[in-house]
């Protein structure tokens, strides 16, 4: 049941993308997300798709594996598509009884669902190509530059790395508890809604108990090793930019410029949708 969640899963291949500085990857992804909301035209979207395809190809992560992360989102994407298609008023292209498709609706539905897909794929490629430790290091470094958050940067990053660290553990634990209760004849698949909700109690109670136990043990272990937050801590591995990072930033700047400029091109029919 957890096999399809690729978001937050690391897929090591040792590619150029994997070896980039985590800050580069985070900044790149962040900028990419913003750019996706800036873009409003076909050329811009083509650039967005192109750059994503380039990154996926460079990362050497199989495309099917990246695409798998979209599976849980299919429903939302389809819903976005359908709602935007039929609910947007405008110049009617097609009509049947109360259903109609407008030019604007067509454009919105395609662009919105494309945006969603790119958004999720873009972020999952970052998590797939960055180990959780690198990711939190990068976030800590990034947050330390922001004046207001600077003070909490270490604590936030620590919380995040602990949370990330425990996701697989808790998943494993859940899997084990589900199996153990199934071995005692638990049936999660039949019965009405209330019965099914009740059937979850034998899983949730042990899961919470173990999560609290683990948190408690971890806190004790950290204290035993004199952990007292970020003040005065030095790093074993200091992040440093390499040549590849410079190239990545140049590519990012070029992409951003191209995507912004694409807004000012005047498009021939049928593109000026509004």
């Amino acid at each position: 049941m957890f096999k399809d969640i690729t978001l937050g899963q690391y897929y090591p291949t040792g590619s150029v993308i994997h070896r980039l500085d985590p800050r580069t990857k985070i900044n790149f992804t962040f900028a990419y997300i913003i750019l996706l909301f800036v873009v409003n035209n076909p050329v811009g979207y083509l650039i967005a798709i192109g750059i994503l395809a380039l990154v996926i190809a460079l990362s050497k992560i199989p495309f099917v594996y990246v695409a798998r992360g979209l599976k849980p989102l299919i429903f939302i994407v389809v819903l976005t598509f359908v709602l935007n298609m039929f609910m947007t008023p405008g110049q009617v292209l097609w009509q049947w009884k109360f259903l109609h498709i407008s030019r604007q609706g067509l454009k919105l539905s395609i662009f919105m669902s494309l945006r969603l897909v790119l958004l999720v794929t873009g972020t999952s490629i970052m998590t797939l190509a960055t180990s959780p430790m690198d990711l939190t290091d990068g976030m800590e470094a990034d947050m330390s530059v922001i004046p207001g958050i600077k003070r909490f940067a270490h604590d936030l990053a620590m919380m995040m790395s602990i949370a990330l660290r425990f996701i697989p553990t808790l998943m494993e634990e859940t899997d084990k508890i589900i199996k153990a209760q199934k071995a005692r004849g638990a049936d999660f698949e039949t019965g009405n809604l209330i019965e099914r909700a009740k059937a979850l109690i034998p899983i949730l109670v042990p899961l919470f108990v173990s999560a609290f136990r683990r948190a408690d043990e971890l806190a004790t272990a950290m204290e035993a090793r004199c952990y007292r937050g970020g003040a005065g801590r030095t790093r074993m591995y200091v992040l440093s930019y390499q040549k590849a990072d410079t190239i990545a930033y140049v590519v990012l700047a070029a992409t951003a410029a191209a995507m912004i400029l694409s807004r000012f091109i005047s498009y021939p029919w049928p593109f000026p949708f509004n």
Binding site: E173, K176, I177, K179, A180, Q181, K182, A183, R184, G185, A186, I201, P202, I203, V205, P206, V209, S210
Partner: peptide, 28 residues
């Protein structure tokens, strides 16, 4: 089949969930 083949997992104490011992044993 799962009732015919009973399986006790490694560290089975992590699967207890009921309010009382008797209720937990009665789950199966």
């Amino acid at each position: 089949t799962r009732f015919s083949v009973g399986l006790v997992f490694q560290y089975p104490e992590h699967q207890l969930f009921e309010e009382t011992v008797a209720k937990d044993v009665a789950y199966g």
